[in-house]
């Protein structure tokens, strides 16, 4: 049967940082993440077919993945006019950097609820995060195959 999954250490630290923020501070921190989302690496930018679209209604999000020394790296493309979703992508990019594919699959799908962003963004807006998490898990599965 299922057992509780584990949040990788890097991501757990980010979750805790958000948890410790109150109200508006959570949004300010999310904005910092949105602004820190790294540009696509040259090999992805040169060949955008390496990006997979995350099926999401209002915001076009695309992601590519590779395995570097046994750890996952995710590369996201999110429009600048969607900073909330950029913030979600940056949290996942940084928090899961170097995690093994097994660790990515072990991540609880609702890990982000502990950050409390739904209090300032609405539960509906958190669906972008759910979609991103579901998609990086699919990319992790592909690395195991």
């Amino acid at each position: 049967m299922s057992r509780p999954g584990k949040v990788p250490d890097r991501l757990a630290q980010i979750v805790e940082d958000f948890e410790l923020c109150e109200g508006r501070e959570k949004l300010e921190l999310l904005l910092q993440y949105a602004e820190s989302l790294p540009p696509l690496p040259a090999w992805v930018a040169a060949d955008e077919s390496s990006l997979e679209a995350v099926p999401e209604c209002m915001t076009p999000v695309a992601v590519a993945a590779e395995l570097v020394d046994g750890g996952m790296r995710f590369y996201f493309k999110v429009p600048a006019e969607s900073p909330t979703v950029r913030g979600f992508a940056a949290i996942v990019e940084e928090g899961l950097r170097g995690a093994t594919p097994e660790q990515v699959l072990d991540l609880p799908a609702d890990f982000y609820l502990q950050m409390g962003l739904q209090e300032v963004l609405t539960a509906q807006r958190m669906n972008g995060m759910s979609a991103i998490v579901a998609h990086v898990k699919r990319l992790a599965v592909a690395q195991l195959a």
Binding site: L27, M58, A80, E81, P83, L121
Partner: peptide
Amino acid sequence: NEDALLYET
């Protein structure tokens, strides 16, 4: 906005 952070950018 629909995006809660867009104003801040």
